[in-house]
Design a protein around this nucleic acid. Structure first.
Lengths: 184, 184
DNA sequence: GTCTATAGATCGATAGAC
DNA sequence: GTCTATCGATCTATAGAC
């Protein structure tokens, strides 16, 4: 299970998984070391500022992935309906059909929200803005588009919470299908 | 039901606030003691099993409140539309218009989900079931009612996440208004 | 009942050998 | 670059004075 890595970037997926599963405070250096296959010394070699730098790097990676695979495609001016459909596909894959929680959502609810307020705010604001742009491009009024975009992003986050609580990934699937219909 | 001393019950609101704000792992006995005004000795006198018993008691209190103020009224057979409207009113008050997170939702996303799987599952399953019953009573087909109930409960949870992330309670208000419309 | 003192474990972070 | 050893702080939980 532990993964041996000689580059800082190689450790990020394992670090992300621990932060997602245990939150910031619950992600101990022991767990982070076990997941990456690195000792504390190595972790501090790659991330001199410790856990805070590890999470910042993970959030940067998450943001880059969503920017490239979700946000930017929504802002491509041709075929907004197709771009919105692609968003739902990527998001469903990313959250493994509701089996994986959203790290940014976890941080938003947690006690370290203030510490990472900027990346958390940026992630969701960018998502809502990009979807609003696509919906507007698809013909909706700007006010309707903004309201619907907020509804969809919130609905996805809520579907993750409910699917985890009920331990039923189909809850996530049903919610995604409903939200997808609403953007037609 | 065992007798609960006045002092123990009086400590529950303060304990609940600490668990909501810091999660289970982040709620230290120091914070719990400071919030309740009790020393560690007193806390262990009222809750011999420590934090686990404190959270269990808090979850029992939350469940009782929602059962009395939200779930049971939804199952009153007369005027389901009014009962659903009352649900939104009580929920908006309870979550202080999006300024207060949902403790059960926080637990569902956290690493102690398995430890408290039963109360977390019960809370959301009961909420969805009660709302489904009211929507059915209001004239919807049982399949439509179940799907809409899931959408509404998930939408409320997602609105809490998004409102916290964007630090904007109006996001919660707008989401609640939209969900309220959808149940007409 | 409520407090202080403290045990025993674990935390983040550092130092130094190799 | 990776490891082990270890520090000081903090954690849960217990013991005992009052």
């Amino acid at each position: 299970m532990p993964k041996i890595s000689t580059e800082r970037a190689d450790a990020l997926p394992a670090l992300a998984e621990v932060f997602r599963e245990h939150g910031y405070g619950g992600a101990s250096l022991f767990l982070l070391g076990k997941a990456t296959g690195l000792g504390k010394g190595s972790l501090y070699h790659f991330f001199p500022n410790g856990k805070e730098e590890m999470l910042a790097a993970v959030l940067g990676e998450v943001d880059s992935w969503f920017e490239a695979n979700v946000f930017a495609p929504l802002c491509g001016k041709q075929d907004p309906a197709r771009a919105i459909g692609a968003m739902f596909d990527r998001v469903d894959e990313y959250f493994r059909s509701g089996r994986q929680v959203c790290l940014v959502g976890v941080l938003a609810l947690g006690d370290v929200r203030d510490r990472f307020a900027d990346p958390v705010h940026s992630y969701f604001a960018r998502w809502v803005a990009a979807l609003t742009e696509a919906l507007t491009e698809a013909g909706q009024s700007s006010t309707d588009a903004a309201a619907l975009a907020e509804e969809v992003v919130a609905g996805i986050q809520g579907a993750i919470v409910l699917a985890r609580a009920l331990d039923d990934p189909e809850v996530f699937g049903r919610a995604m299908a409903k939200l997808r219909e609403r953007t037609f």
